[in-house]
Structure formats: structure tokens, C-alpha cells
Design a protein around this nucleic acid. Structure first.
Lengths: 154, 154
DNA sequence: ACAGTTAAGGTCAGTAATAGTCAAAGAAAG
DNA sequence: CTTTCTTTGACTATTACTGACCTTAACTGT
């Protein structure tokens, strides 16, 4: 099944769902101990899966009584947010940024998991046949497809 | 008989049939080991036999805990013609040819006039910002958008 | 107050575990 | 004999995980 990082991610997300205010406070050392890993593994999970682009804000404090707080931020207007996300795509788009954006759009319910896979598949198919400028083509394709989805579902 | 690639193809398809949700997760290295071949042989099989055109979506992740997931999506018979049209697009697409294709798709009722306009607008927007390779980008964009429409409205 | 101790969390670079790419060699088909 | 499909392997890219070392904040005794 998934990796340790996946499990930690799932665990934190579950806690977030169960929380009243979409935020949880963690103890890095405690969590690492629960999952039998080094503390820095927690930083790895936070850095790769709880980014701002995916809609999470992480704040922390060191020292005695230190903590890590993870908040899932909701946007007032999903459509506006989606459009802003699209605007943030420049002339180039890496695979990683695409994944972040898709994860976010799926998260706010603008696209379904199936739509997400379809987009991914199409982009992979199209970018697979060229050797140069994949990031440029990916930017255009993702912008075009998402724009189409937004327009036709609005 | 058949080649090694054929056997690997058959094996993956068998797994897909046996799966509950028409999708399987593979380990490239494991599969290569099972068939006593180099790992890149698996990529060859996926690239030549499990394409979007044939109704498969392939996604993968590298690194520790990496995987390859193959999903099979059903295509209606009515859409075969449209899919063939898409195949004919090739690596470049002029504005004139695009118009021809859009017209035909509109004729057979696969896309509405509104969708047609939306596609035109998006393609114009995306191709307008580049100076070279407009026909190449247009081919990708039109293929991507039409493919998306066909798949999501099937 | 101050200094020392304790209790957090942060960084970064290195290692391991996967998968991807590309071009060239080999095999099969026409 | 030429072209197309298959197979291989060397090189590359990405992701996960660990551990040594660093930074910050609170507490404690004098």
C-alpha cells in the first residue's frame, strides 16, 4: 500500500476533518514516535503535502511548549479561487505544480477524481510525444482544459 | 504465440478484468522481474498498448513506494468515429483544418455550437501568445479538448 | 536579572528505492 | 532490402526516509 508519508498525511487529514475549526495542533516528536520514524519525517510530510498551493497553512513554534499547527483554509468563493489558480499558471508548468493545482481543485470540489485522472492522462499523452518544451505545453493544456471545465460548468 | 510485449499486455489486461474497479497497480521492477526483462520494457508496453486512444489511463509515481497504475475506461461505440477523427489530427493542425474538424463534430451532434465557440476561443487565446509552432500547439489543444469532451460526456 | 538546562521544532545533505528517457542493437514483417 | 516493431541497458529524475547538527523558547536556581 502507501508509504509511511502517505499514512501520516492521511492521519493528519483525518484529524483535520474531525476538528471543529479545520485546524489541528500536533506535537512533532509525539507524532514521529507514534509512527516510529524520525521527527524530520514529519517536516517532510508537511513540506510535500500540506502546502499553501494545496490549501494548507502550517505554523509552528520551537522551544518548550512548542507545537505545529496545521490549518485547512477554505475559500469564500470557489470559482474565484479557481480562476486565480489558473491565472497563477504562467508560461510554464511543472508536473509537480500541476499536481498541486489539481489536488486543490479536487479538494474544493471543482473537479472530480475521475476528471482529474482524465486531465492527467490527456496531458501525459500530449506531452509524451515531444522532447522539448513539455512545461510550456503542459501550461497551455492545463489552462485550456480547466478553463473549459469552468466555463462549461458555470 | 506473440512477443514478450504481447504477453505482458495480456497479463495486465487479465489483471484489469479481474479487478473490481477496472484499475490495477503495478510495480515496474517486479513485473519486469516476473517476465525476466529490463524495466524499460514495461514502459514500452504501456506506451504502445495502453494509450488513451485505446481507453487506458496510466499514471505513475517514482521514488520510494513508487507505482504504476493502469485504469481502463469504457468508450461507447457511437464515439468511435469521433475518436478516429481525433487520431487523424497528427502533430500539426492549421486553423482551416481545425475548422473542418469542428464543423464535422458539430454536424454529427457531438459538440454544440457553444462548445465549438468555447474551443475556438481557448485555442485562440493560447496560440495567440506564442510566435512559433502555433500549428503544433493547436493540434495538442484541440485533441486535448475534444478528447476531454468525448470522454466526459460519454 | 542571568546563566544554565531542558524541551521543543528546523535544516540539510546523504542514501535508498522507484520509475522514466533515449538511442542503439536485434528481430520480424513487407 | 527496407521499414517497422521489439528489446536492451546506460543514464537520468523523482520521492521517501534518516541522522547529525542547528535554532528557539520556557523553566529554574541563585
Amino acid at each position: 500500500m502507501g508509504t509511511l508519508a502517505d499514512h501520516i498525511e492521511a492521519y493528519i487529514k483525518q484529524m483535520l476533518r474531525r476538528s471543529e475549526d479545520n485546524s489541528v495542533e500536533l506535537s512533532r516528536a509525539q507524532l514521529a514516535s507514534d509512527f516510529s520514524c524520525v521527527p524530520s519525517q514529519i517536516n517532510y510530510v508537511l513540506a510535500t503535502r500540506f502546502t499553501l498551493e494545496r490549501g494548507y497553512v502550517v505554523e509552528s513554534r520551537r522551544g518548550g511548549g512548542g507545537y505545529i499547527r496545521v490549518a485547512h483554509v477554505q475559500v469564500e468563493d470557489d470559482l474565484t479561487h479557481a480562476v486565480n489558480l489558473l491565472k497563477s499558471i504562467g508560461s510554464q508548468l511543472s508536473e509537480r505544480r500541476m499536481e498541486n493545482i489539481l489536488a486543490r481543485l479536487r479538494d474544493i470540489g471543482l473537479i472530480s477524481p475521475a476528471q482529474c485522472n482524465l486531465i492527467r492522462g490527456i496531458v501525459q499523452q500530449e506531452t509524451g510525444t515531444i522532447s522539448q518544451g513539455k512545461d510550456v505545453l503542459r501550461a497551455s493544456l492545463v489552462r485550456a482544459l480547466l478553463f473549459y471545465i469552468i466555463k462549461s460548468e458555470a
